[in-house]
Each structure stands twice: as structure tokens, then as C-alpha cells.
């Protein structure tokens, strides 16, 4: 792994990240490096720390120790940084939430151009043009004037991706992107994400979905109990899992699918 991506600086470089919530250690020293253009599946059982790690990267949660750098912008441990540092960081990271969190009072198009207009000071006219182009690219151009509550789950996710991409962040975080998608929609999403990585975007997706990881990820990282316990190419990690947590993850999946969904 190190060899494959040593050529360019990692887009995401996390070292020894710890995060304590009350008396519980949610992250206990996470080391994680992701190179430009990679699509990485962050896997693990619920409560393993995947979502918390994404939130720390997005600057939504302060961590207690370690260093965290995204495309050259560093966050220090302790507390959330000053607004200007945070703002710089947030331009580097886009996030698509599991439940999308589209702004309920704004149309799809206005969801996408909000940050362009108010953070990046793009003229409204130009911002709307870009928003429409992005929505078209995501295949939801026809829904530009719809309000979030009028969108299907798949449509809402595409709008959420467009919103995250509007400010052109190098790193895109996704939390459980396939959780509410049927297989056909899942494949569409996979194709979309592959297209994004081909154009140089870096993607980190927290997921339970090993089929998705196998089919689309360049690399799988497994977290358990607040630590990275296993990583490598999907076929290797998911084909012959070494860590008990990985094995448990896969057996759980088999049970819930009634035996076999391997493609």
C-alpha cells in the first residue's frame, strides 16, 4: 500500500487520532493515509468508530490527540480550530451524510449553490449555472426545482453529492452511501464514484456493504474498537479476512442476506 501511493502526497494523512466521548474511547489512535484519486471503503462493525472518524476529518468534532492533515491543511488536537482554519479545512472536504441532510427549505439547485454564493462569493447567476451543470452530471438535472421532501432517496443522495462537490473539494467523505439504495441504484452510484475518482477526486466511504467495497473500492480499511485493524485491496481483505472483526462483519452480512450474495 505504502508503495502504491508513495509517489504523491496523501490527500488525507491521519496519525494517532484519539477521541474520547465521556468515559468511552471512541478512537484510540487511528493511523490512516489516503492518496489522491483513491476510492477507499472504510468498513467495520457498528460502533467501531467509522462515522466518528469521518466527522473528525470533516471538522465537525474535535479530537484529543494526534495530527490530521487534509491536502496540506492541518487540524490540531484539543478543540475545534479558529473559524478561518476551519473554513480552510472545510473547503478541502465535502461530506455526504447518511440521511443526506439536504436543506429542507431550499430547492435542489439552491442546496447546491448555497456554499458557492455565500462562502466562495461566486455571483448568483454563475453559481446557479454551475449547480445545474452538476445536477445534470449527477443525473438529477430535471429535479433542480424540487424541494428535498419531493425527492426519492436516490435522487436526494445525488443532490447531496452535487452539493458536496459544488465547492470542488479534493476529498469527499460519504457515510453509508449504499444504505438506502436498491442494487441497480447502488451500481449507478458506484459508476458515478468511479468517474469522480478518475477525474482526480479522492473518496472515503464508510460502509457496511462488502459487495459495494469489492466492486468499486481501490482499498478497504477495517476499523474495530477505535483502531485500524486491517487494510489492503478488497479481494485480499474480504476474500481472506485476517482479523476477527472483519470475519464477524462478513458473517453478519451472510446471515442477513440468507446465505449468499457474493457476486
Amino acid at each position: 500500500m505504502e508503495g502504491a501511493h508513495a509517489m504523491n502526497l496523501p490527500v488525507l494523512d491521519a496519525r494517532g487520532i484519539t477521541l474520547r466521548r465521556g468515559s468511552r474511547d471512541v478512537l484510540r489512535g487511528v493511523d490512516l493515509h489516503i492518496g489522491r484519486g483513491e476510492l477507499v471503503a472504510l468498513m467495520g462493525l457498528s460502533g467501531g468508530g467509522k462515522t466518528t472518524f469521518l466527522r473528525a476529518v470533516a471538522g465537525l468534532e474535535a479530537f484529543d490527540a494526534g495530527t490530521l492533515s487534509v491536502d496540506g491543511v492541518n487540524l490540531v488536537a484539543g478543540r475545534l480550530p479558529a473559524p478561518d482554519v476551519l473554513k480552510a479545512r472545510r473547503r478541502k472536504v465535502g461530506m455526504v451524510f447518511q440521511f443526506h441532510h439536504l436543506f429542507e427549505h431550499l430547492t435542489a439547485a439552491h442546496n447546491v449553490c448555497l456554499a458557492l454564493v455565500h462562502v466562495h462569493r461566486v455571483p448568483r447567476h454563475e453559481a446557479e449555472r454551475r449547480a445545474l451543470a452538476l445536477l445534470d452530471q449527477m443525473g438529477v438535472g430535471a429535479r433542480a426545482r424540487a424541494l428535498p421532501r419531493e425527492l426519492s432517496g436516490g435522487e436526494a443522495q445525488r443532490v447531496a453529492i452535487a452539493r458536496a462537490l459544488a465547492v470542488d473539494p479534493p476529498l469527499l467523505l460519504m457515510d453509508e452511501p449504499t444504505a438506502s439504495l436498491d442494487p441497480a441504484r447502488r451500481d449507478e452510484l458506484g459508476d458515478t464514484l468511479e468517474r469522480l475518482t478518475r477525474s482526480g477526486r479522492t473518496l472515503l466511504a464508510a460502509t457496511h456493504d462488502d459487495d459495494f467495497a469489492r466492486d468499486y473500492a481501490d482499498r478497504v480499511i477495517v476499523m474495530a474498537d477505535g483502531l485500524v485493524v486491517e487494510q489492503g485491496d478488497p479481494a485480499g481483505v474480504l476474500g481472506s479476512p485476517q482479523h476477527p472483526a472483519t470475519r464477524q462483519l462478513l458473517s453478519q452480512k451472510k446471515r442477513s442476506n440468507g446465505g449468499g450474495s457474493d457476486s
Partner: peptide, 17 residues
């Protein structure tokens, strides 16, 4: 909902915005 606020913060909006 808190999610609405976090979505806005992640986009880089200031607290006032």
C-alpha cells in the same frame, strides 16, 4: 434538526451564516 446545521457547517458556512 442538528443534521441541517452540520450539513451547513461542513459546507464552510460561518455560524452566523
Amino acid at each position: 434538526p442538528k443534521g441541517q446545521l452540520e450539513a451547513a457547517r461542513v459546507l464552510g458556512l460561518s455560524e452566523r451564516q
